[in-house]
Computed example of a mutant assay.
Amino acid sequence: MIILGLTGSIGMGKSTTASMFRDAGVPVHDSDEAVHRLYSGVAAHLIEERFPGVVSQGTVDRDKLAQAVLGKPDALRDLERIVHPLVRADSDAFVKRHRDAGTPVILLDIPLLFETGGENRVDRIVVVSAPAEVQRERVLARPGMTEQKFEAILARQVPDAEKRRRADFIVDSSKGMEAARASVRDIIAQLPGGKPA
């Protein structure tokens, strides 16, 4: 079984690209989606213990949590210590399920793949990228996003140029949906056992 790792800096189009792999028949484990599930499940009480007042009706309020950790490196590290092992366990269960089923290719969508040592868990790395001005425009168009928030997020991420250098495959998301979809099909076709659906 080939395990692809998908990553890309904020605003690069990683989630859209993950959907394209899913549409092409590749099972996808989405770390962000796993976090959403955990925030309404097993992680909620652990996060509330460390950050009192951020959980309401059994679910982590992401805005309150952001206020509790943004610009506070120690608080952010504490949050990561709670969440990362839970996401990793969820991902490991996904990998095992597909290995047992004989799935030829799966994809792990890991936003902070290089930042968390995730490259050691995958066989090939796909980086989604776009020019910096396209990225900035996309991110600043998001509701509630500010220059300050954007810069704080970027500061925590491995630079795009470094991600591209370490990638096995690059999907340029600035050339339109069809070009990105063609890149995805091409990547799958190059893998042993990989045939786009």
Score class of each variant (00 low, 15 high):
A141T: 15
G8Q: 08
E137H: 14
E80T: 11
E137V: 06
G71A: 01
P159L: 11
E147N: 13
M177H: 15
D90R: 05
P104I: 12
S40L: 05
R88F: 14
M20Q: 05
D160H: 00
T7V: 08
E178C: 07
A161E: 15
G117L: 06
D90Q: 11
R124C: 11
T59P: 00
K195Y: 07
K64T: 02
E133I: 05
I106T: 10
V126Y: 04
A152F: 13
R138F: 13
P159W: 11
N120H: 14
G176M: 12
A180D: 13
I82H: 12
A66R: 13
V35W: 00
L191E: 11
M20W: 08
R121Y: 06
F150C: 09
L46P: 06
R22V: 00
S19N: 13
G193M: 14
R165A: 15
S40P: 00
A93K: 13
L107T: 06
S19Q: 14
Q190M: 12
D23C: 00
A130H: 07
L70E: 08
I170K: 10
A75C: 04
S173I: 08
S56P: 00
K175H: 13
R138E: 10
I106K: 04
F21T: 02
M1R: 04
A180N: 09
R37G: 01
